[in-house]
């Protein structure tokens, strides 16, 4: 398969039904994307395909063929959201964090609280109780 991963062209020889999550972690060495539940419930594995958040544990490799894929590594550690999660306690154990940030990236700049609630409804966090996450997103700039 060929696809654009974090702005760079990539070519891989993988089984078309392999989970994109595993392709990213095992074949591309991008381990920032986490696995939580493996069944679409927790959002820890959230990445962007063509700018839209998806659960990479439910996406076959074949569906990324020819597509533009963005993972947490694509933000280069310099995205305002990444800074804000550190500054405002949006991350504790960190398992949910890459997924939270990718879902938040898709909301664009200055989302309302309601947009954040809806946009992050598919992302679970066992640690923070969400308010620190919402605060981080609202304060990011």
């Amino acid at each position: 398969m060929r696809f654009t991963l974090n702005g760079k062209r990539a070519r891989l020889d993988v089984h078309p039904m392999k989970r994109l999550l595993d392709v990213l972690r095992e074949d591309c060495g991008f381990t920032g994307t986490k696995e939580g539940c493996g069944e679409g419930e927790c959002g820890a594995c959230t990445i962007l395909i063509e700018g839209m958040p998806v659960n990479s544990c439910l996406v076959p490799a074949a569906h990324a063929d020819g597509a533009r894929v963005t993972t947490i590594e694509g933000l280069d550690g310099r995205h305002p959201l990444q800074r804000a999660f550190v500054d405002h306690g949006g991350a504790q154990c960190g398992i949910c964090t890459p997924g939270m940030i990718m879902a938040a990236v898709a909301l664009g700049r200055k989302p309302t609280l309601e947009q954040i609630r809806v946009g992050l409804a598919g992302n679970l966090c066992r640690c923070t109780g969400y308010s620190a996450i919402y605060r981080s997103i609202r304060r990011a700039r």
Binding site: G40, G43, T46, M52, P53, V54, N55, L58, V59, A103, A106, V118, G119, L120, A121, G122, N123
Partner: peptide
């Protein structure tokens, strides 16, 4: 339905 990730697919 689900969250946005599920809605998108």
């Amino acid at each position: 339905v689900g969250g946005v990730q599920i809605q998108n697919r």
